[in-house]
Design a protein around this nucleic acid. Structure first.
Length: 568
RNA sequence: GGCAGGGUAGCUCAGUGGUAGAGCAGCGGACUCAUAAGCCGUUGGUCGAGAGUUCAAAUCUCUCCCCUGCUACCA
């Protein structure tokens, strides 16, 4: 039983992936999957949801990859942008718009924000001394410089940090510095840049974050700690030619840098969507509904490495600009580790998503990553656990429940939903009540982005249904008490119907199949966040298993694949 | 070094003041509709270490140890 409610307006913002490589399992677990589960639930609930993100086409990694391949940043970005779109399709990540930072609209929005912040005195120009690679003819970010650590003497320390002793460094301190791009010795050069006056927002940010007691402890704690230490102004421009141009004369060789510009993508994507054919009203001003109506919720799904940009820098930009909604929540996930090691685009040893889809179905990975999501601490992915969850939980507990009930009904009741008695037995009514109540509890969990708990709550109902069936043994009753069996199957089919909707946010592909096997027409989403009743007499199509049981050889095969990848 | 998160059964993890929990693995049992799945029972933990507060602490305070991440020109 769900209570009627006013539809909410919710913007689901998801991190913008660097378009410099394919996506791996860590991306999915960290941001894209939780965002999609959340958005699917909100749509089922009848809320007005817009889910946006896009490829980050700028940034050093894209440029570096292009140089390594002897091609252009545009070509690199285009290639991986297409890969991302395929990945979303394959895993059912339902963006309303997945654009990129390489659009005229985005550039316009970024420049408008830049100009207003400059006008208001939140940007200022100052000179800074940087390392320049004379061979590659580029200024070097700290981490692209290597040299001898001034603290421990380790040769191979990066400009930002020494991997040997863990010290935080300034690239200018390194002894015998060399560029990681060309091996050349970098030279010092002064350059003028625009700085964002973050220091001006410390108190305002503190007052904003302090009451957010519903934020995840690691997100809120990290943010408050950072504010306590005090914010330093940051340069938001770079000496580059690939990026958003500065909207002033005389800065042709400089660009606005990604960390300032990419977060603005949430706003520019909303504007792009509003003006596009995807918006039913075709009213370009609709972006206001998500950004200037204070009742709208904006939720940001990101990995923990992205927290400062979404709880400090982006809010500061919004405060400086004025009149736009600040983030409601930033449910950042921790990391997904691969058999104990951190997933990394560069280091390998990861499960690449396009590769996964060539061999397996999307729902089992969606399930596994929701059940074991890195919500409070890092979570480990192992193929052993993947196979176990698939076989024990999806196949055995849930898929088998559907299959056994549909099979018994098909064989004994002419493939039609049996007629229940006028009054249901107490245990029958209790089970139906339990499913209906789960819509409130599971829904509340998803709304707070406690997806692990939500999924667990739904799966407990599946377990209760198995217990109910076992206790009432319809396979026996069908021979000596048909009415008893009819009641059991009628009730269980209805419980399954509820479970299909409860599980749909996590398992959209298999739930769509199960939905039709229950004789329902239309979409699950149209049915809403409630148990869609299965009516007596409805014809049931022939059932088929929802999930495939996986052989243990999957574990050894995939582990060998990972090992080969890490070695090669 | 600083900051943050975490350290609970063999494994993956719930559990923020009131007699230690789930799933899996192990062991035993009853059933047989179902992808040999499902169900019942059971073995197993000095809740990282120590001290403190309390009638009572996994849960609050302090110290220490270990793991992970961040430390702001990677985003």
């Amino acid at each position: 039983m769900t209570t009627p409610h006013q539809p909410e307006t919710i913007l689901v913002c998801v991190a913008w992936p660097y378009a410099n490589n394919h996506l791996h399992a860590g991306h999915l677990a960290g941001a894209y999957l939780p965002a999609d589960v959340f958005a699917r639930y909100q749509r089922l609930k009848g809320n007005r949801v817009l889910m946006v993100s896009g490829s980050d086409s700028h940034g050093t990694p894209v440029t570096v990859r292009a140089e390594q391949e002897g091609t252009t940043p545009e070509a690199v970005f285009q290639r991986y942008h297409r890969s991302f779109l395929e990945t979303w399709k394959g895993f059912g990540i339902g963006f309303d718009l997945f654009t990129s930072t390489d659009t005229a609209n985005h550039i316009e929005v970024v420049q408008e924000i830049f100009s207003r912040l400059l006008e208001r005195g939140y940007l200022y120009e100052a000179e800074q001394e940087l390392l320049y690679d004379p061979v590659a003819q580029r200024f070097l970010p700290d981490r692209y410089v290597e040299g001898i650590c001034p603290i421990c003497g380790f040769d191979g320390a990066r400009g930002d940090q020494c991997d040997n002793c863990g010290s935080t460094l300034d690239a200018l301190e390194l002894k015998s510095p060399r560029s990681r791009l060309s091996d050349a010795t970098p030279e010092r050069r002064a350059s003028n840049h625009f700085f964002l006056k973050l220091s001006a927002f410390t108190e305002q940010l503190q007052a904003w974050v302090e009451p957010k007691d519903f934020w995840r402890p690691h997100v809120r704690g990290f943010t408050l700690g950072m504010l306590r230490e005090g914010l330093k102004d940051r340069a938001i421009t770079r000496d580059l030619t690939w990026g958003v141009p500065i909207p002033l004369d005389g800065y042709n060789d400089k660009r606005i840098y990604v960390w300032f510009e990419a977060v603005i993508g949430y706003l520019s994507a909303t504007k792009e969507w509003a003006a596009s054919a995807a918006n039913p009203t075709r009213n370009a001003d609709d972006w206001h509904d998500w950004w200037t109506d204070p009742s709208a919720r904006t939720e940001y799904f990101i990995g923990k490495d992205n927290v400062p940009f979404h709880t400090v820098i982006w809010p500061a930009i919004l405060m400086g600009y004025g009149g736009l909604n600040l983030p409601y929540d930033v449910p950042a996930n921790q990391y997904l580790t691969m058999s104990g090691t951190k997933a990394s685009k560069s280091r390998g040893g990861v499960v690449w998503l396009p590769d996964y889809l060539e061999r397996y179905d999307p729902d089992p990975l969606r399930y596994m990553m929701t059940a074991n999501a890195p919500e409070t601490s890092d979570a480990d992915f192992t193929w052993d656990e993947y196979v176990r969850r698939n076989n024990d939980e999806l196949v055995a507990r849930w898929g088998n429940l559907v299959n056994r009930v549909l099979t018994i009904t098909g064989r004994n009741f002419d493939a039609k939903v049996p007629e229940p008695p006028a009054t249901l037995a107490p245990e029958s009514q209790a089970l139906l009540d339990r499913v209906d109540a789960a819509f409130d509890t599971v829904g509340a969990d998803i709304d707070r982005v406690q997806l692990r708990r939500a999924l667990n709550g739904a799966m407990e109902v599946a377990q209760a249904a198995n217990q109910y069936i076992d206790a009432r043994a319809p396979w026996t009753a069908v021979k000596n008490d048909r009415e008893h069996a009819a009641e059991t199957l009628y009730v269980t089919l209805n419980v399954i119907s509820g479970l299909v909707t409860l599980l749909d946010p996590v398992l959209p592909f298999t739930c769509a199949t199960a939905w039709t096997m229950l004789g329902h027409t239309g979409s699950i989403e149209a049915g809403g966040w409630r148990r869609t009743p299965v009516l007596a007499g409805t014809a049931l199509p022939a059932p088929a298993p929802l999930f495939k049981k996986l052989d243990d050889s999957v574990v050894t095969d995939e582990e060998a694949r990972l090992a080969a990848q890490a070695a090669g």
